[in-house]
């Protein structure tokens, strides 16, 4: 029963969605299944929060190395959740001034907004910005023209890197735009590489992936592949 019901839900949901795409009459059924999925996705946030609490509370109670970080995660999580759910410091909306919780949880100046603006935003932006340093380091240590494929890859990378800046335009601006050699201007080469070689390669990969997805999806819907439900 524990495995049969999930299998049935998967099969019914999947086949209804397939039918809804091809048969207009069943479009409403597809809509219902998609709404169920959205409801489940919302519940997944609660599960995710519970899981986060469980993992980090265990780390703190076991005093594993780095448990202090877990404490910070728990504190930040609970504080943000609390001030967001309780709408701490949020003024009631103009429309319903008598209701204390009618205001906008992310109102400018409210604690939730403050946390987002001065903690979450700079931290996530910083994490992403650090990629520039690692890419530079990797460029120096890893990209070697060891064989023909690597030479082609590096050559293409140089053209794209230059073509995405004014340097590319400046470098080949001496080639007249209307001449037969205009295609050799770096900015035009970039467009050509992206719209021809890149598109061809990506389309081939996409077709391959799509065929793979069809095969795997059918296995899942028919109950042949049950790995998504975990071990017995």
């Amino acid at each position: 029963m524990k495995r049969t019901i999930p299998l049935l839900i998967t099969a019914v949901g999947g086949f209804v969605l397939i039918a809804a795409y091809f048969i207009p009459f069943t479009q409403g059924w597809g809509e219902s299944v998609a709404v169920w999925f959205d409801v489940l996705a919302s519940i997944a946030f609660i599960l995710g929060g519970g899981n986060l609490l469980k993992i980090h509370l265990k780390k703190v109670s076991d005093r594993v190395p780095g448990w202090g970080y877990s404490l910070i995660v728990l504190g930040s999580f609970l504080l943000t959740l609390g001030i967001g759910l309780l709408k701490v410091g949020v003024a009631p909306s103009e429309q319903y001034p008598a209701f204390r919780w009618s205001g906008y949880y992310s109102e400018i100046g409210a604690p939730f907004w403050f946390f987002y603006e001065y903690a979450f935003q700079p931290l996530t932006a910083t994490m992403f910005a650090m990629l520039a340093f690692y890419i530079a380091s990797a460029a120096f240590r890893a990209f070697r023209a060891k064989n023909l494929e690597a030479v082609l890859l590096l050559g293409t990378a140089f053209i794209i890197l230059l073509g995405r800046t004014f340097a590319g335009v400046a470098l080949t601006s001496w080639i007249p735009e209307g001449s037969v050699f205009a295609g050799l201007r770096v900015e035009n080469l970039t467009v050509y590489i992206m719209s021809v070689f890149n598109t061809i390669g990506n389309r081939a990969i996409m077709i391959g992936i799509a065929l793979g997805i069809v095969s795997v999806s059918l296995k899942i819907l028919l109950g042949v592949d049950r790995s998504y439900m975990g071990k017995e």
Binding site: A132, I135, A136, A139, F140, R141, F143, R144, A145, L154, A157, F158, L161, L162, R164, T165, F166, A167
Partner: peptide, 16 residues
Amino acid sequence: QLVAHLLIIVLILIAN
């Protein structure tokens, strides 16, 4: 972006 891209190209060339 221009200067960073040029730096990456120079680093790749030096490394090679």
